[in-house]
């Protein structure tokens, strides 16, 4: 998945630089909401971004912290992990970040509108917001809940709740309601046979959404 979503983020944030280099995100402050084990935070830090990862779970921080020490390349630019929620975090860091990433988070949130609103508050005016999430369709229900949880057992049962899934239209509506402009929506699909993610035009399964906070 990273092979798709990191360029999805990087291509946008490194706009304006003429040549591709190995630190395209140098100096950009990114908030990674629900960083998991640092799956997105670490690659972004490797690309030069100043990453802060937040997640309510304290146990995750220990895992992520040990993992980030494994890579010598991250030595001078380690992501910071904090055990907190966005709602709490924005009390200190309001309009602070250049970009915010919530990768596969919104599908676990009971009140997405409140969550998205807090996310927007963390970003500077003109900053970018990235969401990746499964759509609420029978395709994602079949693939994510039935296939991955019940057939493959790749993901623990009960990880996903179909009712919490958000469609890109709903997400766009919320974003626009709180003074954001949705720039692009991109579909992602997964080949279960050879474990490769690829970009598609259909939004039936997973999608990535990119928005800008209006000034």
């Amino acid at each position: 998945m990273n092979k798709l979503r990191i360029p999805f983020i990087t291509d946008e944030l490194s706009k304006g630089t003429t040549e591709k280099n190995d630190k395209p995100l140098k100096g950009i402050k990114i908030l990674d909401v629900g960083y998991g084990g640092g799956i997105v935070s670490e690659p972004l830090a490797r690309l030069g971004a100043i990453v802060t990862g937040i997640d309510p779970s304290q146990a995750l921080i220990d895992i992520a912290d040990t993992h980030k020490d494994l890579d010598p390349e991250l030595d001078d630019n380690k992501p910071t992990y904090i055990a907190t929620t966005v709602e709490e975090h924005i009390t200190k860091y309001k309009s602070y970040y250049d970009a915010l990433i919530a990768s596969e988070v919104i599908d676990h949130i009971i009140n997405p509108e409140f969550f998205v609103k807090s996310c927007i508050q963390a970003v500077k005016p003109g900053g970018k917001i990235f969401f990746t999430a499964p759509n609420r369709t029978w395709v994602s229900r079949f693939c994510l809940i039935f296939y991955l949880e019940n057939v493959c057992n790749m993901v623990p049962k009960g990880t996903h709740h179909y009712e919490n899934f958000v469609t890109p239209e709903e997400l766009s509506l919320i974003l626009e309601k709180y003074n954001c402009r949705v720039d692009a929506v991109q579909g992602f699909f997964y080949n279960f046979l050879n474990n490769i993610w690829f970009r598609v035009t259909t939004l039936q399964f997973m999608y990535g959404l990119r928005a800008t906070k209006n000034i």
Binding site: N2, T10, K20, D22, D71
Partner: peptide, 15 residues
């Protein structure tokens, strides 16, 4: 390899 670096992955990533 360049693609991998641009994706922020390890240069030893198996993919």
């Amino acid at each position: 390899l360049a693609d991998t670096v641009y994706s922020g992955l390890d240069i030893t990533h198996s993919s």
